[in-house]
Amino acid sequence: MLAQVATPTLVLHADEDAVIPFSSGRSLAAGIPHSRFVQLDSRDHLVLQYEQAWSRAAAAIQAFLETERE
């Protein structure tokens, strides 16, 4: 069903996620047409504000929203 997703999609995934394997995030993004995938350098499943990955995640989300708004 992923191939049927027609909504702009951004997939963020921590490269050392302790809950969901990194390969699952990649597969998810690969299955959604025209999705964007951003790798985050983190071990956490949820990136927290004090991590270095936070600024990368925030920048990716902002860029995605600005691009999709156009």
Rank of each mutant, 00 (worst) to 15 (best):
D15S: 13
T67Q: 15
L10G: 02
L65F: 05
S24C: 12
P8K: 06
L28Y: 10
A59V: 04
S23Q: 14
F22H: 10
V5N: 12
L12V: 09
Y50S: 13
D17I: 09
G31Q: 08
A60T: 01
A18C: 13
H45W: 06
E68I: 10
L46K: 08
L2V: 12
D15L: 13
L12P: 01
Q62I: 05
A58W: 03
D44I: 02
R26A: 05
H45I: 10
P8N: 08
S42G: 06
T7W: 07
L2E: 12
S42F: 04
T67W: 10
A30N: 13
S35R: 01
S24L: 13
E16I: 06
G25Q: 03
F22K: 04
Q49S: 12
R69Y: 10
R36A: 12
S42L: 02
I32E: 02
W54M: 05
A57R: 04
A53K: 10
A3I: 08
A57L: 11
G25C: 05
V47Q: 03
S24E: 15
R26C: 06
T9D: 08
L48M: 11
A3T: 14
P33L: 02
L10H: 05
T9L: 06
H34S: 13
A30K: 10
H34M: 06
M1I: 11
W54D: 04
L48N: 09
A14P: 03
Q49Y: 08
A53Q: 12
Q49R: 15
S24V: 11
P21V: 07
V47Y: 00
A6P: 00
W54H: 07
M1T: 12
H45L: 09
A14W: 01
A63C: 11
R26W: 04
H45S: 08
T7Q: 14
R43C: 08
R26V: 12
A57W: 04
F37C: 07
V5M: 11
F22G: 02
I32K: 03
E16D: 12
L2R: 15
Q49W: 06
Y50F: 13
A60G: 01
A53S: 15
A29Q: 02
V38G: 00
S23C: 07
G25D: 02
Q39Y: 00
G25W: 00
E68F: 03
T7S: 13
F37P: 01
F22W: 09
S27P: 00
R56G: 08
